[in-house]
Design a protein around this nucleic acid. Structure first.
Lengths: 313, 313
DNA sequence: TAAAAATACTCCATAGGTATTTTAT
DNA sequence: ATAAAATACCTATGGAGTATTTTTA
């Protein structure tokens, strides 16, 4: 049996006339008769009762017509589905986010995907550190990740999303809150709150910046994740250096100040370089173009808005 | 696209290896490669990512495999369904019954069909007179009928199910109840209850029998259907002549007696002679063979049993 | 007798085979 | 170096065409 047979059968069943059906199918009548006979022989059942004046479906034919229509319709739908999937318009993308990226970038990313790729479902896996995200990308548990470069290991491709300066988070009671911009060297004797996890790229950047400024952070407390870290700062245990994006999460008792010379840290989109999932490519493209569209519309306005809100707190 | 393509695709998708899949399909590898390429071209999407060392399904291929399996399975099920329908093992048969046949024969018929043709659904249309049943058979509203021959009009085929003697139904208070067998001529002066409907074959037979015995039923009451007729007899309005099968419906106040010379009346199975529904043929065959099996097992036992129950009432 | 399906035959398009090349590990 | 898919080319099956016959309303 071939789809031919089903298509021909459907045409004959609909017209109840071999000649007209053949015409519809751009086929000679004998070829059609032959195909239907083949089909009937293979099914082991008559589909039509024919006289030269009347062609009617048998009960078996009636049933088979129903199944044939379902089959042909299902295949048509499947071909469209395949095309949409292959174009990346439909699918599931499992997106990993670092804690800080989740706060500052997830809303924008989710909105962009929803607007530009309504057929794509996002599955969010938050609070993973960069090395863990690379591992999950490689073993296929994640399709896409927002992380802090550099990535660990091979086979991961990245695109920088934004470069954020390291920013100072101070207890509201701290004397340095009076200054709008702080020199890094002035933090030499201060208590620090650092990220607990080894493998935190932010942590590494903070310590590297301090070294460059001529000191090593002393009397450090550690926190698991940004929420806890800010809470410890608010509690007055010490100060912290965090990427500017964290300013999107205002917290009572914490004041943010620019650092004059702490350098900056990248946020990047990462995916398996051999990933063949077109949905991933589509999401990457959507996020990238969404990013540049935002920049074009409001080059500095967004940053200003964040600054303003935080001056108030 | 042809089913070929789907079958080949499923094989490759399952083995993830063109060579082995080709072997399974009793096909050379290049032919398989070519067919898959054709399929991909028609779908406008890659189904596999291939290197010489690794063949993997793309997300679109994954989806299409699912649809392909569903389609192939559905078609296989459809071919089996078609065969079973064409063999009369599956289907719907709309069965019409005369009132009296419904009482005496429906249980046996229904049981036979259920046992021998579990895939056949019966749709029962009871209380139709013979001419109406013939019309319903002809216009396709009924597939099969249990009726009193002769049938009206052309194109109806019949098979006699049983020949029932006409039997006397008396009010329990009637003097004739003392006699086990009654001569028809003795009913000459009696009140009669007849079937109301014109077209009742039983009515015609009753009147014919009376004429043959030398009288015409006088002072007649009429009843719509056997249940009412027996109720009127029980009420003492008159006596009635009914086919012996009605004895299967004992009713307080009604006593049945054999008639010596009232003749008998047939019950037959009828269907459209040009009906191509194999389910109808299967049901006819099942009922016929069920009938002869019953007769072989208990030639007179059944009749005796009925007789006995009614003597008690 | 006329319309329509079935049969008889012919042909060529293409599914599938063989031999070979390319490619990735 | 080798396994496996792709490519090139050829063959032959069978799908479809034309001409004709059969059937039934």
């Amino acid at each position: 049996m071939e789809l031919r047979h089903l298509r021909y059968f459907a045409a004959v069943a609909e017209t109840c006339h071999f000649g007209r059906a053949a015409e519809q199918l751009h086929l000679a009548q004998p070829a059609l008769s032959q195909a239907i006979r083949q089909l009937e022989a293979e099914l082991g059942a008559a589909l039509f009762t024919r006289t030269t004046r009347q062609v009617t479906l048998t009960p078996a034919g009636e049933f088979f017509l129903h199944e044939t229509r379902r089959t042909l319709d299902a295949l048509e739908a499947a071909t469209h589905g395949v095309r949409r999937i292959s174009e990346g318009q439909v699918g599931l993308v499992r997106l990993g986010l670092t804690g800080t990226a989740a706060y500052s970038h997830l809303p924008r990313i989710a909105r962009t995907v929803k607007e530009r790729l309504p057929g794509i479902a996002l599955e969010i896996h938050a609070d993973l550190l960069t090395p863990a995200q690379c591992d999950r990308l490689r073993d296929g548990a994640l399709d896409l990740a927002v992380l802090r470069p550099p990535t660990t290991g091979e086979g991961i491709e990245t695109r920088t999303l934004t470069t954020e300066p390291l920013t100072l988070a101070l207890p509201a009671t701290h004397p340095l809150t009076t200054e709008p911009i702080v020199e890094l060297a002035r933090l030499a004797g201060e208590d620090f709150v650092l990220y607990a996890a080894s493998g935190s790229v932010v942590n590494d950047a903070v310590i590297r910046a301090c070294r460059a400024a001529g000191f090593v952070p002393q009397r450090t407390h550690t926190a698991q994740g940004t929420a806890v870290l800010l809470a410890l700062v608010a509690a007055g245990l010490g100060l912290a250096m965090v990427p500017a994006g964290v300013r999107a999460v205002p917290l009572d008792g914490v004041v943010f100040r620019d650092l004059a010379d702490a350098g900056s840290i990248d946020l990047a989109l990462a995916w398996r370089s051999d990933d063949d999932n077109p949905a991933v490519a589509a999401v990457v493209a959507a996020i990238e173009s969404g990013l540049s569209a935002d920049e074009a519309a409001t080059p500095a306005a967004a940053a200003t808005a964040v600054r303003t809100r935080e001056e108030q707190s």
